[in-house]
Design a protein around this nucleic acid. Structure first.
Lengths: 187, 187
DNA sequence: AAAAATTCAGACAAACCTGTCTGGCTGTAA
DNA sequence: TTACAGCCAGACAGGTTTGTCTGAATTTTT
């Protein structure tokens, strides 16, 4: 039960993750997912009641991938200012290794503008975690007056999303490099 | 001939503009467009060979709308630093009056990741015009060393896209206000 | 061994999609 | 008057979509 459950369900999620991220949610059909995953359609609907639920699993998976990659980039880094720069450097590698597909949370919101459903809630939740990361780092920085912490974190967060989106648009990491230069004047 | 031609084609484009921007390109069907526009399907395909071509017209229309709105915001403004702030204030009203649908160029690229077609070219072209606006304004600013012009313009451009995207995600204009605060420390 | 959970292949339903085509109507231009 | 541009309604083709269902096989748990 454990090994088979893991194998089939894992195969479905990882295939959906790859296709949703590369092609977009609306342009990826269930039939393509099951074909490339090598599983039966009934197996997919056994684990996920609907495509929508599979999408939520996809967004969670994206966060896990980003999060573990970021952890690797932060190994041995104790200075919070350095950690923020490393986060942007991580973003650069993340986008390169994912064919400049941008931010999955932003993209899913761009694709499905109607709100109040599971998908949008998960996307916004994930984005808030990114926001919180910058708040946490700035709080750890010395000589930042406490009433400026949120402002600085928000500015960094704006640069982060701007750089991610522009890297997707132009298909290169120059916007990330621009953001890092801007960062270094701020912190 | 002139009035009828204008009336029907214009009706198609303005309806497509509204629906593509609100619902997204892939979730909007030709049938919904012709129904809400009150025109025949043959009329739509008389003016536009394909949905793709209609989308290009939509992107051009979006630029016209943004551009004319920005011009109103810049009336009587001669100081370039003030013009940049006004551009962000304009963005705030633009997003509010469009139900926080974000940037149509970014969204279309997010929806259709495959490149080298007319749609992506038009989207990138429109984004480059936004970029160029900031470059032009920064160039007009006094006491900016010429080798810092591009860096400053790029930073502002990053804040602009970051604020636009986050306003769409969170459905409010707080990110724009954050960006304006960051701006005022830069210029 | 019996029961329950998991997986399979694939048909099927009902709805949608883009784009084409038929055939006819109207108004303007030559 | 003839010709053509513009527009109409709607059928149609050929494909796609998500999700359901059948019925059987396999694995795991009890």
């Amino acid at each position: 039960m454990i090994s088979t459950d893991h194998s089939v369900k894992e195969q479905i999620v990882s295939t959906a993750d790859r296709l949703f991220y590369r092609q977009g949610y609306n342009l990826t059909g269930i039939n393509q997912i099951i074909e490339e995953a090598g599983v039966a359609k009934a197996s997919l609907y056994y684990h996920f009641p609907s495509k929508e639920d599979l999408c939520v699993a996809y967004l969670k998976r994206r966060y896990e991938k980003w999060s573990s990659m970021l952890s690797r980039y932060l190994e041995g880094v104790s200075d919070p200012a350095k950690a923020i720069v490393r986060c942007f450097e991580c973003r650069s590698e993340y986008l390169i290794s994912n064919d400049f597909s941008g931010c999955s949370y932003i993209r899913i919101i761009a694709e499905m503008p109607q709100r109040s459903d599971k998908i949008n809630q998960q996307a916004v939740l994930n984005k808030e975690k990114q926001h919180q990361f910058f708040i946490d780092q700035v709080k750890r920085m010395k000589d930042i007056p406490s009433d400026n912490v949120l402002d600085l974190a928000n500015t960094i967060y704006l640069l982060f999303d701007g750089a991610t989106v522009q890297s997707q648009v132009y298909r290169n990491v120059l916007p990330i490099e621009n953001a890092i230069r801007a960062l270094q004047k701020l912190i």
